[in-house]
Amino acid sequence: MNNNQQDIETAKQVALYFRRGQKEMNEITDQIKSSVSKWQKLAGDIGISRAEQMLMAEAFRL
Results as ranks from 00 to 15, higher is better:
M1S: 09
M1K: 09
M1A: 10
N2T: 13
N3K: 08
N3T: 12
N4Y: 11
N4V: 15
N4E: 15
Q5L: 12
Q5F: 12
Q5R: 11
Q6M: 07
Q6C: 06
Q6D: 06
D7R: 15
I8P: 13
I8Q: 09
I8S: 11
I8N: 12
I8G: 10
E9G: 10
E9D: 14
E9W: 08
T10V: 01
A11Y: 05
A11I: 00
A11T: 00
A11H: 03
K12L: 11
K12D: 10
K12H: 09
K12G: 10
Q13C: 14
V14I: 12
V14L: 13
V14A: 11
A15N: 06
A15P: 08
A15E: 01
Y17N: 07
F18W: 03
F18Y: 08
R19H: 06
R20M: 08
Q22P: 15
Q22L: 15
Q22V: 10
Q22D: 15
K23G: 06
E24P: 09
E24T: 12
E24I: 11
E24F: 09
E24Y: 06
M25P: 14
M25L: 07
N26W: 00
E27I: 06
E27F: 08
E27A: 08
I28Y: 15
T29S: 14
T29K: 13
T29I: 14
T29A: 13
D30S: 12
D30V: 11
D30N: 09
D30L: 07
Q31Y: 05
Q31P: 07
Q31L: 07
I32F: 14
K33V: 13
K33W: 13
K33N: 14
K33D: 14
S34W: 03
S35W: 10
S35V: 08
V36M: 04
V36S: 05
S37F: 05
K38D: 08
K38S: 03
K38H: 01
K38V: 02
W39N: 00
W39C: 01
Q40Y: 02
Q40D: 07
Q40N: 06
K41V: 09
K41P: 01
K41W: 06
K41T: 09
K41C: 04
L42T: 03
L42S: 01
A43N: 00
G44E: 00
G44K: 02
G44C: 01
D45N: 01
D45G: 01
D45L: 02
D45K: 00
I46Y: 07
I48F: 06
I48V: 03
I48M: 03
I48H: 03
S49D: 02
R50E: 02
R50A: 01
R50G: 00
A51D: 04
E52G: 02
E52L: 05
Q53V: 01
Q53W: 06
Q53G: 02
M54N: 14
M54Y: 13
L55F: 04
L55S: 05
L55A: 04
M56F: 10
M56I: 09
M56T: 09
A57L: 10
A57V: 12
A57F: 05
E58C: 09
E58R: 10
E58A: 09
A59Q: 13
A59W: 09
A59H: 11
A59N: 13
F60E: 02
R61S: 15
L62S: 11
